[in-house]
Design a binder for these strands. Structure first.
Lengths: 208, 208
DNA sequence: CCAAAAGTGTTCGGCTTACACCCATGT
DNA sequence: ACATGGGTGTAAGCCGAACACTTTTGG
């Protein structure tokens, strides 16, 4: 009975939601793109295994990480179980191991290559969960730097939902839910009025 | 690496939400009350294992069954993983194996005995999930007979949420969501006006 | 005729949505 | 001065919550 852990690592790059994929280094599906993952070590917890994979691939540690679902049909082998997690990272903090044999890469979720096993299903599941959580929690903190202009946050939401939001309504929602708060500082980024900088009220996952 | 499956089997008895517990027949926690479960057989899927456990304990098969969460801290043993499911059954269809050595029994969820491992946490998790699903899906079909007066359904909702609902609002919500529909038949149950019988528009789980 | 549960509409407040103009800055 | 993105208020529709009386039956 084999237990493995899979991690759907999501980020925003160039206003596009992307997922980290690696080349498989073993049969079956040798050389195909797949989600990072591996066997659960005998002494570690599931969350530890997922966090370890995340650090191995991206170098970042303190990010949002949540258990997604457990699958029994992911590596063809009978009696094998995979517990999937999803993580949200700020791509500016990530350093991929591009020297690694498995050549990791970020792929736009609308433009995925053919994947090993049923990995596409796992990614769809992660995106659905992410969209839900964005609505009523602060998970986006894990995609953003400490402070940011509101329009950056809105751009992240729009990338993930694939549609535009009204900026007045967006601001009202974020503030009235108490998810973010103004820092009082501003930032200038071009030939226009400087933007106020905001921060998340909390950078811990909300427990409901 | 051991993989086991746990099932939180919920029902309504005497207007109370209850969970099926058994006596553990092995160490550790020998003789304590615990959720039914067992090892995943080499050739079966996770959902099959959960359904098998459900049939073994209750005799019913075609009910709502959903994966809840996977735990790695449930039987003390390191490297052991338990995938929890929850099921909703109509107690009128259930025949418990009362002759069985483990003496299964229904316990009101507000009045649980001390449980083995962290089973109380799993039950809380199941109840939270159930309450969520009741709001926007038809899962309650699995707790009800084919046809029923609306007040019976409302009583089920009230038992699970632990509070009363306004019957006009309740009726409107159920009908406008299209979860149930009238059958045209009625039922008389006492010295008062007969009730219209309703049925679920679909007795399949909604996939969203 | 009385007791008991079934059935039925309307009002109010809050939330979501849609929508258009002025502001501050760099060049 | 002008181009660019930043910032702001209001009205309309929709949804959920609160609320009381009439209907139909059995005894």
């Amino acid at each position: 009975m084999r237990v493995s852990v899979l991690v759907v690592i999501l980020t925003i790059i160039e206003e596009e939601l992307r997922v980290l994929l690696i080349h498989r280094s073993a049969e079956p599906y040798l050389g195909w793109w797949a989600l990072p993952g591996g066997l659960l070590l005998p002494s570690e917890s599931l969350a530890d295994a997922a966090a370890r994979k995340l650090v191995e691939e991206t170098g970042v540690g303190d990010v949002y990480l949540e258990q997604l679902f457990s699958f029994d049909d992911l590596d063809g082998e009978v009696g094998s179980v995979a517990i999937a997690y999803f993580a949200l990272v700020d791509s500016r903090r990530v350093r991929l191991r591009t020297e690694a044999a498995w050549e990791p890469g970020w792929f736009g979720v609308k433009d995925l290559p053919e994947l090993a096993f049923a990995n596409a299903k796992v990614i769809d599941y992660a995106i659905a969960r992410l969209r839900n959580k964005l609505v009523y929690t602060n998970v986006a903190y894990s995609l953003m730097p400490e402070t940011f202009p509101l329009s950056d946050l809105q751009a992240v939401y729009e990338s993930i939902f694939g549609r535009a939001f009204d900026k007045r309504n967006f601001r009202r929602r974020m503030l009235s839910q108490g998810i973010i708060k103004p820092t009082g500082r501003t930032i200038s980024r071009g030939a226009h009025r400087p933007a106020e900088l905001y921060e998340f009220s909390s950078r811990q996952p909300m427990t409901l």
